[in-house]
Design a protein around this nucleic acid. Structure first.
Length: 569
DNA sequence: GTTAGGG
DNA sequence: CCCTAAC
């Protein structure tokens, strides 16, 4: 999978394409649609892109990617004469970051083995969750593990297994590798060499879809989205010019395997993502929690991100200085303290838009959720006020400071080792502290809350079936909205899609033998009517299909008639 | 926003 | 029920 990336440069960092463009298959038929796998590693690649950019940024002139010995480094990379010195970087392994004093984290061994990434260990950070990105045997899912240091069961450490990047050229690694490839047409391009093998296709697709959906949904309310996009466009030109240079450097670099000096190798095993704050019902399932986190993550990734470089727990703001000057060089004692962060642009994103809504996620009667009564709106995404370390998970956060710069926040919370193979225990209550986005997670009782927990199963009663059949007999199939209005107007939990689905199952039920039927038995009489109506309307539809005239929906037959009437048509 | 169908 | 292409 090779994705062309836009290497955008911002004065302060790199902009990530929100999500790789996923070409939608042109719509054609409504039937037999084949769901084309749509880049299941989208998120993954996105991060890989960051990594690529990041590495590129370590030195404005040199791409410190040491692919020596990496089997993934195409031989085609050996060309490209070097036109600039690369002495700023030394080849060296990135040791595990030293845990900063401010962070109770325990320095982990500089283990670069794949195992490190595959092990599900909680990543901690004092400010909330730290999501470690890693490819775990192809799983693209968010797993949850309890914090080992937990004092309360409510504390979790999130671990994202699957969305990951690792710059480990180790051929035996299970990690997804970031490699530099070159093809004749596109020259060099970053690509992720997914080592991921047997992965849950469905899972990956699901995650990607979720991300897309979330992003899509977020944008819907994003009043500033356009602005952001425009910015992206603007910097695109820069990207291109930069990209060329980038490529050249990259090529050169790979070819200069004989000149290990002046290079420093940084293995980015994980990125600390901005704090994610979520609210979720205690009764929510773990699966819901996962989805929620995924949403929060997607929301964050959706915005403009820049990579921040941390050194000794402090943010390195200077972009022009060399790595060496900054203290990042082979054998540097500071090497262990290098860290990276993904930071949102200081631009106010929709997710951070100030909002005063409050009780948008209160629990409601699960039995009568009112889909129309509290639709999910951007208001659900609230910024959280600053430092409220003790804020319980479920507490509501309101009136955040919209002006608060994420960057500032980020710098304030220094000392958090960003690149880390060590798993740091999460010492604070799971949530809170300036999240970039608060994702409502109390879906249990919400009927129409996309991405939320699956709706409660509510089998149709015979009475409902009766009403449905009657309505369909009258209105026909294909007018589910009308059916809904006609027979289920007050049944908030029955959407027209539900009715359509129910009809489908009724038809099926009526077709199979009684022994095969399950659930509350539906009177045969009703099933007969179902078949009759189905047959009738099928004919009607086929008729109309031929002579595309007349108003199908307006025709109907008496609901009481025997199947005989149908046959007469 | 609706429909139609596959999952 | 969910998901989503196609309208």
């Amino acid at each position: 999978m090779v994705l062309k990336r836009r290497l955008s440069y911002g004065s302060r960092g790199y902009y990530l394409p929100p999500i790789p463009d996923i070409p939608k298959p042109t719509k054609k038929k409504r039937t037999a649609r084949k769901k084309v796998m749509q880049n299941p590693l989208a998120a993954f690649d996105m991060l890989a892109t960051v990594a690529g950019n990041l590495l590129n940024d370590l030195d404005t002139d040199v791409v410190p990617v040491n692919l020596d010995g990496a089997p993934n480094c195409n031989s085609t990379l050996k060309k490209e004469p070097l036109d600039e010195p690369l002495d700023q970087l030394k080849t060296t392994k990135m040791e595990s970051p030293d845990q900063n004093s401010t962070n109770q984290s325990t320095a982990g061994p500089s283990d670069l083995s794949p195992k490190t990434l595959t092990d599900k260990q909680p990543d901690l950070c004092t400010n909330g969750y730290e999501v470690q990105f890693a490819a775990k045997q192809g799983e693209t899912d968010i797993d949850l593990v309890r914090s080992i240091s937990s004092e309360s069961s409510s504390e979790f450490s999130l671990y994202s297994g699957g969305i990951g990047i690792a710059l480990d050229p180790n051929p035996s690694s299970l990690e997804t590798r970031l490699t530099v490839n070159r093809d004749d047409d596109e020259n060099t391009s970053w690509c992720t060499d997914a080592v991921v093998k047997k992965s849950s296709k469905r899972m990956k697709k699901s995650c990607v879809d979720k991300l897309k959906k979330v992003i899509s949904r977020c944008k819907k309310y994003d009043a500033t989205a356009k602005v952001i996009n425009d910015r992206k466009r603007k910097c695109y030109a820069q990207q291109m010019s930069q990209k060329n240079r980038f490529k050249r450097k990259t090529l050169f670099h790979c070819s200069s395997s004989s000149s290990p000096n002046g290079q420093v190798r940084l293995c980015i095993k994980s990125f600390k993502v901005p704090e994610l704050s979520i609210e979720i019902a205690e009764s929510a399932s773990i699966g819901t929690l996962k989805r929620t986190v995924m949403e929060a993550l997607a929301a964050v990734l959706e915005g403009e991100l820049t990579v921040g470089v941390m050194l000794e727990g402090k943010k390195v703001r200077e972009n022009s200085g060399t790595l060496r000057e900054a203290g990042i060089f082979c054998d540097s004692p500071l090497l262990d303290t290098v860290g990276f962060t993904l930071e949102p642009e200081p631009v106010q994103s929709p997710l951070m838009a100030p909002h005063t809504s409050s009780d948008s996620f209160d629990n409601r009667d699960a039995m009568e959720p009112l889909a129309s009564d509290m639709p999910a709106t951007p208001s659900s995404l609230e910024p959280v006020p600053v430092p409220v370390p003790t804020t319980p998970v479920k507490s509501h956060v309101t009136d955040p400071d919209p002006v608060l710069s994420p960057i500032e926040v980020s710098s304030a919370e220094q000392a958090v080792p960003q690149i880390s193979q060590a798993i740091i225990p999460l010492p604070v209550p799971a949530v809170k502290i300036e999240p970039l986005a608060v994702v409502p997670a109390v879906r249990k009782t919400r009927q129409v809350d996309a991405l939320g927990q699956r709706r409660m199963r509510r089998p149709f009663s015979v009475a409902e079936v009766e009403a449905l059949v009657a309505a369909v007999e009258k209105l026909g199939t294909g007018r589910w909205r009308d059916v809904k209005i006609r027979a289920f107007e007050t049944a908030k939990h029955r959407t027209y899609v539900d009715l359509k689905d129910k009809w489908k199952t009724l038809v099926h039920t009526a077709t199979i033998s009684p022994q095969q039927r399950r659930g509350e038995p539906v009177p045969q009489e009703l099933l007969d009517r179902v078949l009759a109506a189905q047959s009738y309307w099928s004919h009607q539809h086929s008729k109309l299909a031929k002579s595309s005239i007349g108003e199908p929906g307006l025709a109907d037959y008496d609901s009481s008639p025997s199947p005989v009437k149908i046959t007469s048509l």
